[in-house]
Amino acid sequence: SVQPWSAILEEVRRRIPGQGVWITNISASGDTVNIQGGALDFPLVNDFLLTLLDSNFVTSAVLNSASRVEGTPETEPSVTYGLTVTIRTIGDPDPEFTRELEQRGAIGLVEKIRILRQVEGN
């Protein structure tokens, strides 16, 4: 299956709940994306997880770890977190999801899907 990585990364960026949550590392394998990062507090990590689960690109998201980091005279206390996110397999997307892909910038993938639909229809 082909994943629209530019659209997926844009979706993850859009789902970050404002200031106070950041990503330090993203890695992907197949349809799984691992995200590590930090936040100012635990509720912000929870908000990020819930907004990811609300995405049409995501089929599941699990919080693997969350740890409090003590502040120093130069830094505020914070939380480090790790998430595992399972991305929807594209396959033959419905028209609504195709529009969403297009809105997120996956124009090339949307065009490939249209061409394949035309070829299959002939």
Results as ranks from 00 to 15, higher is better:
Y81E: 01
T75P: 06
S29I: 07
L52K: 06
P93A: 03
F97R: 08
T59L: 07
R68K: 04
L116E: 09
P95W: 06
G121D: 12
I8K: 03
V69T: 14
Q3I: 15
Q19E: 09
D92Q: 05
I90K: 04
G121V: 04
Q19C: 01
T24P: 03
Q118F: 05
V58C: 06
S65N: 14
V45I: 12
G91C: 04
L101F: 08
S29V: 07
L109Q: 07
I8G: 02
S1N: 08
L49G: 04
P4V: 09
T72S: 13
V12C: 00
R15F: 00
F48C: 07
P43M: 08
D92L: 06
G18E: 11
L9T: 05
E100V: 08
V33R: 10
E96Y: 11
R68P: 00
K112E: 07
I115S: 08
G82K: 12
P95N: 05
G38R: 14
V33A: 13
E96M: 12
N122P: 01
V79M: 15
G91H: 06
W5V: 11
L63W: 01
I23V: 15
L49H: 07
G71P: 13
V12F: 04
T98P: 03
R114A: 15
G121F: 11
G18Q: 09
V21K: 00
S27Y: 11
V45M: 06
I26S: 01
A7I: 06
Q19P: 03
E76S: 10
K112Q: 13
I26C: 02
R117V: 05
D94S: 09
G71I: 12
N122L: 15
L52W: 04
L40K: 14
A7F: 07
N46K: 14
P4W: 10
G71K: 14
N56D: 12
T89R: 14
V2L: 15
L101G: 03
I26E: 00
L9N: 08
R14W: 10
Q3T: 14
L116C: 00
T89S: 13
